[in-house]
Amino acid sequence: MRRLLISAPLSLLFTWAPAMAQEQPLFVPAPGWGTAHIVLSGDYVGKQVRLSRNGKVIVDRRFTSPPGSNNRLPIFTDRFDMWVQVEIEGCPTAVEVRVPVEPARSTSLIFDGCSVRALLPE
């Protein structure tokens, strides 16, 4: 009798398990939400560079190696463009740059002296 009482609920549990595994997750991000990347390019090597968005620092470091995969910065976004403040060592003022972003794509920031420009996402 005890075996019957235990096995019946267990068999029900295991018969429901595959159905539960196929259910959709509770939170599904809206289209357009995701991680975009900003890729640094140009003549920033050897300089301290600080990128910030809405007062929040994205990166603040001295870049000592030539452009490569370690200079690809992930950014979670729910927009298709953002304003980024760029401070470059040796430049008198910070630069505000409008950066077009798209989830799962990369946008290049091109450094040329104290000026910075952004390309469209690739």
Rank of each mutant, 00 (worst) to 15 (best):
F111V: 00
L26K: 02
V45Q: 02
T35R: 07
R53M: 15
I88D: 00
L26T: 07
W16N: 09
E23L: 12
R105M: 14
D60W: 05
E96H: 06
E89T: 06
D78Y: 01
V101Q: 08
P66S: 12
G90L: 01
R105H: 12
R98I: 11
P29L: 03
A17H: 07
N54S: 15
S115G: 11
R105S: 14
K56G: 15
R105Y: 12
G46R: 01
I88S: 06
S106W: 01
E122W: 04
G42A: 13
G34Y: 01
N54A: 15
L120Q: 10
L13A: 11
L4R: 05
E87D: 13
E102V: 07
V101Y: 06
E87C: 02
S108G: 03
A21Q: 07
G34I: 04
F63L: 13
V97M: 03
I88F: 03
S65R: 08
W16E: 13
W16V: 11
I6Q: 05
L4F: 04
R3G: 14
A17P: 04
L120M: 10
R117M: 06
R2C: 10
I6R: 03
P92N: 01
L40D: 01
I110M: 12
E23H: 01
P31K: 05
V49T: 12
Q22L: 13
A30I: 06
L120H: 05
P18L: 14
T15H: 02
V45Y: 00
P31W: 00
L13Q: 04
M1N: 11
I110R: 10
I6A: 07
A94K: 04
T35V: 12
V45P: 00
P25V: 05
P18Y: 12
F14R: 09
I75P: 02
S7V: 07
N70Q: 14
A21D: 09
R98G: 07
A104C: 00
S115M: 10
K47E: 13
